[in-house]
Structure formats: structure tokens, C-alpha cells
């Protein structure tokens, strides 16, 4: 399988279509974490997320001929997203449970973390992140999907439009409303607001120190 690892998505899709079926598992390895994470954040249930991820890959495999280029990631996530929404609707009356993320910290993947910070700041960051995650789980599903796909998974507006099947304008407004709602929720909670203000002071101190240093 090693020969495929470096190849772009579309080349792998072509390989599968022309009979090299094992090339599909390279795509699985490439996107299983993204699909599972999105499904988990949408559904807030690990077993459902696992089912949906498996189903999405099986469906993508059998329906591979209907992929018409563009973003394979978006095409795949569209399948998973549709399936997740179906499941959410069928469980509409299910009581909301807090997002359970086992091993979250053990398997933490720090991206874009600035230079080493003091233990206190580190603890504040983790605490605020936990509160953001909890607030995210209470967003309406369409706004939640937009925030997950754009801010967490880093998809483009165009890709999110493909995944969710709505216009670019709708994607942008869902994202703006979702972020605004997150901020309003955190600002309404006293501890979260203090944590946010702490970060703000840090951010404001940074540039002022730099400017004073250059004078």
C-alpha cells in the first residue's frame, strides 16, 4: 500500500476505479480522523460516530463513480454529514448528553500553540477550551456544523457549501451566527468571561511591550 501514500486524492480515486481497490484504504487512512471527529462533534456519541464513520466510508466506496472531482474530503464529509443529520433527527427526543471525549488530553494534538506558557496560563487555556467545547455542543446543528468544519477542521467556505448542500452565503451566515452565539454564551458565564478577559490582557500586553521595546 506504501506506493499510494504520496498520491493525491484524485489519483487514488482513479486507481480504485480502474481496479486497484486497495488504494481506497489510503483515502480511509487519510480522512478517518476528520470524518470521525466531525461525526463525534455533531452527534456527541462515540458509538454513533463510529457507526457513521464506517458507514460513510462504505458508502463512499460503493458510490465512488459518482464523485466528480473537486474536493474528495468535502464529498466524503457530505456523505457522513447527511448520515449524521438523519441520525440526529431520528434521535430528536434523545436527551442531550455532554460531549464525552475519552483520551482527549492524552492524545492532544496541539496546533498553533504559541511558545511555552506558564503552567497557570496553560491551565487557563485548557479550561477555556473545555468551556468552548461545551458551548459548541449546545449550538443549533447547522451552526455547529459550520463552526466545526471551518474553525476546527479548516475547510473552505466552498467545501462547507458542498458538505452541507447550501449556498456560500448561507455557510457564511451560519458560521457568523455560530461564532457570535459562542461568544455570547461565554460572555454570559462569569468564569468564562474572566478567562477570556485574561487572554485579552495577555494579547494587549504583548504588542504594547513590543512597541515600547522598539522606541
Amino acid at each position: 500500500m506504501g506506493e499510494y501514500v504520496e498520491r493525491p486524492d484524485d489519483a487514488l480515486v482513479h486507481a480504485v476505479r480502474s481496479g486497484e481497490v486497495t488504494a481506497f484504504n489510503v483515502l480511509v487512512e487519510r480522512y478517518q480522523r476528520t470524518v470521525y471527529t466531525v461525526a463525534l462533534r455533531l452527534l456527541r456519541d462515540r458509538f454513533l460516530a463510529e457507526d457513521i464513520t464506517q458507514e460513510a466510508f462504505l458508502r463512499a466506496y460503493t458510490a465512488l463513480d459518482s464523485y466528480r472531482g473537486g474536493s474528495f474530503r468535502a464529498w466524503l464529509l457530505r456523505i457522513a454529514h447527511n448520515r449524521a443529520l438523519d441520525t440526529l433527527r431520528s434521535l430528536q427526543r434523545r436527551p442531550a448528553s455532554p460531549l464525552e471525549l475519552a483520551g482527549t488530553d492524552a492524545h492532544a494534538e496541539w496546533s498553533g500553540v504559541p511558545a511555552p506558557v506558564s503552567p497557570v496560563e496553560h491551565a487557563a487555556r485548557i479550561e477555556l477550551r473545555r468551556r468552548i467545547e461545551a458551548a459548541l455542543a449546545t449550538l443549533p446543528e447547522d451552526q455547529r456544523a459550520a463552526v466545526i468544519l471551518f474553525d476546527i477542521e479548516g475547510l473552505s467556505y466552498e467545501e462547507i457549501a458542498t458538505v452541507t448542500g447550501v449556498s456560500l452565503g448561507t455557510v457564511k451566515s451560519r458560521l457568523s451566527r455560530g461564532r457570535a452565539r459562542l461568544r455570547a454564551m461565554l460572555a454570559a458565564d462569569e468564569t468564562s468571561r474572566e478567562l477570556l478577559e485574561g487572554f485579552l490582557r495577555q494579547a494587549n500586553d504583548g504588542p504594547s511591550e513590543r512597541s515600547s521595546g522598539s522606541e
Binding site: E29, T37, L58, H107, W110, S111, L128, R129, E133, V147
Partner: peptide, 17 residues
């Protein structure tokens, strides 16, 4: 910024076919 650095959950298993 904090959303972007939310840790990804660990995979329960490989989803390879």
C-alpha cells in the same frame, strides 16, 4: 483560535475496509 487547537479525539479503531 482556541477552536482551531481543540484536540482531536482518539480513533476507536481503524476504519480501513
Amino acid at each position: 483560535a482556541l477552536l482551531a487547537e481543540l484536540p482531536a479525539p482518539s480513533l476507536p479503531r481503524s476504519f480501513a475496509l
